[in-house]
């Protein structure tokens, strides 16, 4: 597995982490209604989407580099 492939795995896991953090913040917001939790939750979703877009751009830019 090349660094390119491992990087894509890493970006995928990072997106999942951001979604976990978002769920955790939304859970806190549901329990306590603190606006900061809602803000952090939304911010985490935004970062997750940003990482997805980055992954797509990365794939397009380095399509000639081997996956092995």
């Amino acid at each position: 597995m090349s660094l390119k492939t491992f990087h894509l795995v890493f970006v995928t896991v990072s997106v999942l982490l951001m979604l976990v953090i978002a769920a955790w913040n939304f859970g806190n917001y549901r329990d306590n209604g603190t606006p900061a939790d809602l803000t952090w939750g939304i911010a985490s979703v935004v970062v997750a989407v940003g990482l997805l877009i980055y992954g797509k751009v990365f794939l397009r830019k380095f399509k000639n580099v081997s996956y092995l």
Binding site: H7, L17, W24
Partner: peptide, 13 residues
């Protein structure tokens, strides 16, 4: 380096 960062991604939550 990616492995070290990946460990943190699991460790942090």
């Amino acid at each position: 380096w990616h492995f070290v960062d990946l460990v943190w991604i699991f460790l942090f939550p």
